[in-house]
Design a protein around this nucleic acid. Structure first.
Ligand code: ZN
Ligand code: ZN
Ligand code: ZN
Ligand code: ZN
Lengths: 144, 144
DNA sequence: CTTATAACTGATACTTAGTATCATGTCAGA
DNA sequence: TCTGACATGATACTAAGTATCAGTTATAAG
């Protein structure tokens, strides 16, 4: 089943309607790169209301099919993802994203719990770097 | 030397002026709890211009005496801190913050680098939980 | 102590991200 | 096909932050 079908299914399962607008927005979302903003979406759907897209992003978050990526400057971008809790490894050059959750955050958290007496209940982690493709390109770049 | 003196020193060292407004804003900042917003500051200094406080927060970031705390909802708060790169452990109940940097993020980063072929250049980590004080209080809370 | 001037300030207007309201439109089941 | 709850778009609003600009002030050279 495609991500798109999955979203449709979850929508109806929860009593939400499949409208023409929702279908159009979803079509745009699946065509988007790894992460995007609401304005990226609006630019491709000028006749769709701003509030509608924001409402939809919130809905999709409730349905656990989008997450938010924290950029290094502190701004938040959206990303289609049907994973539960996970983290992002974002390429600074091309914006490509790797989701990961099989990480060793838990050991870090245990260290912290021991040294601080906090009871730890959540965390947010984003990692930034450059993907192999972009690193390979750098060597051959004009002027490099 | 107090944090406040340190800031003054760094300001003059970089050719910035010590003005009455800056002194007043700094006084408020050091009196603030672990993290705060610009509007928290403005509420205590109604005659200081909004832009001035934002300008000052940016300046203080350049001087490495404030950092930003990512709250769980995605909003950013400010925090006075003269540390370099570090992370936050934020109490969900009282807002208390522990800075930490002696963490095991580097091993996590190495794992990631090995499994993804990304060259890793940065990260952002925030941890949320409840401090020992708030946990102790819970047991004695009315109605608990 | 002046004075020149670069730095600083506050007001205002603007931007970006997101929420609230509300009249109109439409999906989907009876 | 009827109907009402759900969805939509326009509009206006909030919150965080930036840009502009005319007026003020710190500071250091004289
Ligand atoms: Zn995790
Ligand atoms: Zn890349
Ligand atoms: Zn606490
Ligand atoms: Zn670190």
């Amino acid at each position: 089943m495609s991500d798109l079908d999955l979203v449709m299914q979850r929508l109806t399962m929860r009593g939400h309607r499949i409208t023409e607008t929702r279908r159009r927005v979803l079509d745009v979302l699946v065509s988007m790169p790894a992460h995007f903003t609401v304005d990226d979406v609006l630019r491709q759907l000028p006749d769709v209301g701003r509030a509608t897209v924001f409402r939809m992003m919130k809905l999709l978050q409730d349905l656990n099919v989008v997450c938010r990526v924290l950029m290094e400057d502190g701004s938040l971008h959206y990303r289609l993802s049907t994973r539960g809790h996970h983290h992002h490894l974002v390429c600074r050059d091309c914006g490509k994203v790797e989701d990961f959750s099989n990480c060793d955050v838990s050991s870090l958290v245990q260290q912290l719990a021991a040294s601080t007496e906090y009871e730890i209940e959540g965390h947010w982690l984003e990692v930034y770097g450059r993907c192999s493709t972009c690193r390979a390109l750098e060597g051959t770049a004009v002027g490099a």
